[in-house]
């Protein structure tokens, strides 16, 4: 288990193998749909984990960035006839700029202001998507044209699966590179002690803003792709509950563990499927999971399991 966490190559190989072999056990379109949803959530969580797990900053509004990506791409293609790839690019740049502009003044301050600000931002974005019905179709949602890139159009679930699987693998690879670099060390230093990081020359504001913006862009990319995949979006995609869900996924899987974030996303995407009878209690169950993890394994699932295994071997 421990080599899943540490040596980068081992983990990446396992992830590649899982992505490659999973289609063997997925035997209908619905199974593929779930796998694709896991992939989308996992990518958001890999980005969010850089922010929460490594830099120690909380965002309670990441679903709003997913929403901006979805509606940005949807509106630009459906109403303005843009090329899908250009629309995805424009939406992610726009989301990145917004994240940067919001974060810059807030992250100058130490403390939990980011959580408050992202909470507010997320709620505002969800409201705007609801009431600007001329543009977004309001609560009824809007149709999104099919995706295409360089003349290629993913035609069925299987092709979408490979697209999202590839995207996930690349996201994990990039995240692991980043964490192992001086930039990643600076991020962890910010988490460990902001003042100590500053006095050895780490511009803490810069790094916090940087990683917040990166994670927002990743969320936006996922939003855009998932809009094309589902071909229909509603403002619900940007809801507060979805933002919380992402945080719970990261915390459950294991903060500061990239593979943990993927595992957390997989478990919490599958759980509601397994518990369809308890649908009404979904919020409650998520809340209980969050509390349980915080109390019984504050480091999260994967790091805790790895720690147990390691201790036994010694």
């Amino acid at each position: 288990m421990r080599f899943l966490l540490r040596p980068k190559t081992g983990g990446l190989a396992i992830l590649a193998a899982v992505i490659a072999l999973l289609p063997l056990v997925l035997d209908n379109a619905f199974h593929f749909e779930i796998a694709i949803t896991i992939g989308f959530n996992a990518i958001v969580c890999v980005g969010l984990n850089l922010l929460i797990g490594y830099a120690g900053q909380i965002s309670l509004g990441h679903a709003a960035f997913v929403g901006l990506g979805a509606y940005g791409a949807g509106v630009l293609t459906a109403s303005h006839g843009w090329d899908p790839l250009a629309a995805v690019g424009a939406a992610s740049i726009g989301t990145g700029l917004l994240a940067f502009v919001v974060a810059r003044p807030i992250l100058r301050l130490q403390g939990h202001y980011l959580a408050m600000a992202t909470l507010g931002l997320g709620i505002i974005i969800a409201i705007v998507l609801n009431i600007e019905d001329q543009i977004t179709g309001g609560p009824d949602g809007m149709l999104v044209p099919p995706f295409s890139a360089f003349g290629w159009e993913p035609s069925d679930e299987r092709q979408w699966y490979w697209l999202v699987g590839g995207f996930l693998w690349i996201s994990v690879w990039l995240a692991l590179n980043l964490i192992g670099s001086p930039v990643g060390r600076a991020l962890r230093a910010v988490h460990g002690s902001e003042v100590a990081a500053e006095v050895v020359g780490v511009d803490t504001t810069h790094y916090k803003v940087l990683i917040f913006t990166v994670s927002a862009v990743l969320a936006s990319l996922v939003g855009s792709l998932s809009a094309f995949y589902g071909m229909f979006i509603t403002p619900n995609i940007a809801s507060f509950f979805n933002s919380i869900e992402f945080v719970v996924m990261v915390v459950l899987g294991g903060m500061a563990s990239t593979f943990g974030a993927v595992v957390g996303a997989a478990i919490l995407t599958l759980l509601p499927q397994a518990l369809t009878v308890l649908e009404d209690y979904e919020h409650l169950i998520f809340g209980l999971i969050l509390m349980g993890v915080m109390i019984f394994m504050p480091r999260g699932l994967l790091p805790t399991l790895a720690g147990l295994r390691w201790r036994r071997r010694r």
Binding site: N177, R188, A196, V202
Partner: peptide, 27 residues
């Protein structure tokens, strides 16, 4: 101290300013 890191990494953070800190190269 950065308690979320190894001792060696703590010292390595100290050299932050003397490293290539380019984001793309790191990514």
């Amino acid at each position: 101290v950065f308690f979320n890191m190894t001792a060696l990494e703590n010292v390595m953070v100290g050299a932050h300013l003397h490293l290539d800190r380019g984001f793309l190269a790191a990514l």
